[in-house]
Design a protein around this nucleic acid. Structure first.
Lengths: 233, 233
DNA sequence: CCGTCTTGGTTGAATGACCAACCATCTTGG
DNA sequence: CCAAGATGGTTGGTCATTCAACCAAGACGG
């Protein structure tokens, strides 16, 4: 039994208790990182005896996984909502709106992102963690490539690359930007997202061009992304 | 004194000795990860007493930093060489050739990449590590944006985003793809790099279109990237 | 030339801090 | 009254780091 949280056969109050502990863990771990968090810290945050944590979770690692799963689900949900909310708009606008959720995520809750990456680092040496993480990534790519698929139908020439690969690259770029932000928060994340937006959207422009349709100008994009185009000197 | 390796006033034989230890550390840490490596392991690999390591390096952390700096420098060098070697070719080909070095890097030496990310995770909680990492990223972005600048002059319409932001996004995407590869090596890295290539290069296509020049067809790109375009069903 | 001193390296056992996991023992709700 | 739930001190193991002792090889005085 690896994860009592998901195990059936626990009363709903027990599930609530487990969740309470997981939330406390999320708070402390976000604050101090996984390595910098002791079971005692978590117990203190949850106002509970240290031993009790092991009653609900087999190990510290399990607790981390529960936390990370919660955080992932939350982020994915936000992205899905933004995508759905923009369902009437032009494909470019939808893509941009959805991308924004990633941007605000790192801006508003850097600690959570940090925890995610600590978990990834742990996964490199802990096979159990890795498996869980693979699952989470599969879900994330499913969601993203679903969106790409949908946008693909609204564009004159469909993308010349498999939607899933395209989605993976988008996710990769977001992860990478997040990483850079975590390492040096003083850098301007908005500028990077703007650049990412341009890069992705110029693909759309090419799509128009290839179809022999009038190509949207870069100024159009610029207006959309809320910035001026900045030609190189 | 934080880093005896760089400290002046050590005889050159001492520098050699330090390097020898750092190389042993690189080997073991790549194999077992930073967390999974003990000073004893490193000592054994270097055929040296555990205590000696602290004669040359103040802490395990310092040793990691020395190792990471070596690895970074190596990768940057490879990329620079590939870029320089292709200096006669078309901008698209140069970009692609340089991108390839990143691809082979993760394919051939995943362990090193893993160590890099473990170091990044550590940086989140260790200010000293973070500072060093910021420096390394600055260097990396300098190199990359230098390349982007150079390519920018060879293209009909210069990029509408600052070269440095563009470079940062490229680096981010590479990092992200690397991360995904580390988590699940069974995924097809080549496909992701192909997708990244298309995304970046369709920006070039747009650049032609905006300039009112005939747009290179996606088939042209496909040939260049050594694959067939795969239209979505 | 030879013994001794000095210095720069080198050794590996001992230290000490840390903490996840355990468990013997209470408490309480049903 | 008795589990299920909760407590928190104890335990055992892991390591980074320290340190006192050791050694080889060059400098030096006699």
């Amino acid at each position: 039994m690896t994860d009592k949280l998901l195990a059936p056969g626990l009363s709903s109050s027990a599930q609530q208790r487990a969740r309470h502990i997981a939330e406390a863990a999320a708070a402390v771990m976000s604050r101090n990182g996984y390595g910098g968090t002791t079971m005692k810290d978590i117990a203190a945050e949850a106002q509970v005896a240290p031993g009790l944590i092991h009653y609900y979770f087999d190990s510290k690692e399990d607790l981390l996984l529960a936390v990370v799963r919660m955080l992932c689900e939350e982020m994915r949900q936000e992205a899905r909502e933004a995508f759905a909310a923009s369902s009437g708009a032009a494909p470019i606008a939808r893509a941009w709106a959805t991308l924004q959720t990633a941007q605000t995520n790192i801006a508003d809750k850097p600690d959570r992102q940090r925890l995610m990456f600590e978990c990834i680092a742990l996964a490199m040496s802990e096979p159990r963690v890795r498996e869980q993480l693979i699952e989470l990534y599969v879900d994330l790519l499913d969601t993203t490539s679903g969106m790409v698929d949908e946008l693909n139908t609204q564009v004159p020439t469909p993308l010349p690359v498999p939607a899933r690969d395209f989605a993976a690259v988008i996710v990769a770029a977001i992860d990478g930007i997040t990483l850079q932000q975590l390492i040096d928060p003083s850098r301007d994340a908005a500028a990077l997202y703007r650049a990412l937006g341009f890069i992705l959207l110029s693909g759309v422009a090419a799509s128009y061009a290839v179809a022999g349709l009038p190509t949207p100008s870069l100024e159009d994009f610029a207006a959309l992304l809320g910035t001026q185009p900045e030609p190189q000197p």
